[in-house]
Design a binder for these strands. Structure first.
Lengths: 185, 185
DNA sequence: CCCGTCCGTTCTGTATATGGAACGACGCGA
DNA sequence: TCGCGTCGTTCCATATACAGAACGGACGGG
């Protein structure tokens, strides 16, 4: 599918998800509703600023409007590790794998921190090691006293035994979080 | 920084990285060079198609042109696990962590598969479990006889004991790869 | 029934993003 | 030194993305 059609479909889908009317969306984004109508129909080649205004109103990362939605995610999942879902306002945490072996435990999480969110995690027991692999967005994380700024591809390891913070100052952040516990409990 | 400036800066940086001249880039993208000149200067509000043509020529995921580059990634890395780098033409694989415990071994890799690449991995020893967490792009992976298509957020687990394939038909793919070996060797 | 309101599409005049021409600056070989 | 190619910028005519008006249809209250 050509790009303008993809963007149009994504816009319409995002708008439907939020239950907004076309007119209301256009009003909030301060664009003409004719513009939005033709955009969603895939009949116009939007300007960066138009896209940005819509992304903001629809609360969708700009980049997401530009890629074709994998038509269906569920059926391709071969062996999905459904785990604890600690989702909240600021972040989604989903347990993907857990390995208990040799007197220690390792958990792999998929982490999604929403744009603008800040979350402080109280200290875990000592000798818990946290590791983060940032994939998209900019994440400020680490011990609360000395957090670091990470971009895509960056990696951090720190002691979970002190208070630590997760903060996404700009964009949504996706990352992989590994927690290593010294005991198998 | 306003968005058009960000995009302009990203375009200029991407072009510089590839050592292309402005004129040559414009020619390849089939856009006017005046257009590109003013775009890079942050003086124009580009059209989706213009951006797309440039992203293709510069071989940058479209979304990446739209976000401000974290001004410097290196110094924020607190404790980078520098491991074996199996980088090649089609994919980069970087070992981020290794846990040997309880008679088994677990390795965490950051995986980057380039757009268009296809890579077939010969069967490992039996009982090796591979797990993949896709973060960006669309990845076709799994046993060579029956690969699956994964999008961002999708997860797959399969037996590494048979031939399996990694393929990025459209965009660059970033993912986390976990390899679990039954013995600590 | 008959307004009034809201919906999404189509239409229209204007603003502006576009490709390409023109330009001056620079480097290089003859 | 001169000519020639390429560079990046500025300028121009044209195409088109824009905002908003006009429109017909759906719905609901009086």
């Amino acid at each position: 599918m050509e790009l303008v059609k993809v963007v149009g479909a994504n816009l319409r889908a995002a708008r439907a998800e939020r239950g907004l009317s076309l007119s209301e969306t256009a009003r909030r984004a301060e664009i003409g509703k004719g513009t939005l109508s033709e955009l969603e129909a895939g009949r116009r080649n939007p300007t960066l600023e138009t896209l940005y205004a819509l992304a903001a109103v629809l609360d969708v990362p700009l980049g997401r409007l530009l890629v074709a939605e994998p038509e269906s995610a569920a059926p391709v999942v071969v062996n999905r590790a459904r785990g604890a879902d600690l989702s909240g306002q600021v972040a989604d945490v989903e347990l993907m794998d857990r390995v208990v072996a040799g007197g220690q435990r390792l958990e792999v999480y998929r982490l999604h921190v929403r744009a603008g969110a800040r979350y402080v995690s109280a200290a875990h027991r000592p000798r818990v090691v946290e590791q983060l692999l940032v994939h998209t967005g900019t994440l400020v994380t680490g011990p609360e006293s000395a957090p670091e700024t990470l971009g895509p591809g960056d990696y951090i390891r720190f002691d979970g035994g002190v208070d630590h913070v997760y903060q996404a100052p700009a964009d949504d952040v996706t990352a992989t979080l590994l927690m290593r516990y010294p005991d198998p409990s």
